[in-house]
Design a protein around this nucleic acid. Structure first.
Length: 301
DNA sequence: CATAGATCCTGTATGC
DNA sequence: TGCATACAGGATCTAT
């Protein structure tokens, strides 16, 4: 369940290893991991140089030595692991890992050789090559990621514009938060956390919330993401770890997600869980009324 | 065009 | 013990 903070932790973790490195060799162990790629994945990457690694929302991409990017999405359970190359190469048990999908051997400018493994238990993740194009604000972005809106940590993210977009929607507010073409990087966990902080129930119609209140919501999204980033992301199990295999600690700071039956930090009443969009939504029934714009018009301070 | 639902996938936990 | 079921949920495709 990597969302923006977790993906950013991975990006930062990978950066020192892949910066200006040459891809010596690639081996695909599971075709599903490259299902979106056109042509031979291994042939296209052989000998290419990774200039740097960038991100928008939950999408990562390595900018290569041509106007092209290696786009990566971690899906539900994708993770990278970096191993230093030795004469013994990578220990056999790591190469036999049941979730190992793609192996890469990269050479750093220093001449050091590293093995880069992409593991993915649930196989929703993967990578593909895509040409770089210019977006509406003049940034280079992979063509396949052009439909993904800017995320709250993007320097060109304009909260006012996003609020107007959200306000124009007649969908439920949580549905809008999870829509990556309106603003990106939010998944189920941070959606619930930001809604709690804003005193909004996820079923409230976006267009019925005041713009002021929506601005507050967007601000909470940004805050909760930054706080999670500071903690190294949210980990519940071994499915999300950084490139060193370490977990993040933000799960300790969650106010509602995964806390069904526990007391609300603000009012003490039980946190509830309902099924929404084929997933769980956690919320406080008292702090997050279903019709806040009507019942609590003064909430948007 | 906007919106909503189905689909992909596997390991873990739970129920009978 | 063993089998069935629920659950975790990203993006994308299809249908309305």
């Amino acid at each position: 369940m990597p969302e923006l903070p977790e993906v950013e932790v991975v990006r930062r973790g990978l950066t020192p290893f892949v910066h200006n490195s040459t891809i010596n060799r690639v081996e695909v162990r599971h075709d599903r991991a490259t299902r979106r790629n056109q042509g031979s994945f291994t042939d296209q990457l052989q000998g290419r140089v990774i200039q740097h690694i960038s991100r928008r929302g939950k999408f990562l991409w390595c900018v290569l030595d041509q106007p092209e990017a290696l786009v990566v999405h971690l899906g539900m359970s994708g993770q990278f692991r970096v191993y230093p190359w030795t004469d013994q190469a990578v220990p056999a048990e790591q190469r036999r890992h049941p979730h190992l999908r793609i192996l890469g051997e990269i050479e750093q400018p220093s001449g050091a050789i590293l093995d880069l493994h992409f593991l993915d238990q649930r196989t929703f993740g993967g990578m593909h090559l895509s040409p770089l194009v210019l977006d509406d604000r003049g940034d280079h972005i992979p063509e396949s990621v052009i439909h993904i809106a800017r995320d709250p940590l993007d320097p060109k993210f304009n909260a006012g514009d996003i609020v107007k977009k959200i306000h124009n929607s007649q969908s439920e507010i949580k549905r809008v938060l999870l829509n990556q073409s309106i603003l990106s990087g939010i998944g189920n966990i941070y959606a619930d956390e930001a809604l709690f902080r804003s005193g909004l129930h996820g079923s409230v119609i976006a267009g019925e919330v005041t713009e002021k209140h929506l601005l507050e919501l967007v601000s909470h999204v940004k805050d909760v993401m930054n706080e999670a980033l500071d903690e190294g992301g949210t980990s519940f199990d071994a499915l999300y770890v950084n490139v060193n295999g370490e977990s993040g600690y933000f799960s300790r700071s969650l106010a509602v997600y995964g806390r069904e039956g526990e007391p609300c930090d603000r009012c003490g009443s039980d946190i509830q869980r309902i099924s929404f969009m084929n997933r769980s939504s956690f919320f406080c029934g008292k702090c997050q009324p279903r019709i806040p714009a009507v019942a609590h018009p003064e909430r948007a301070v």
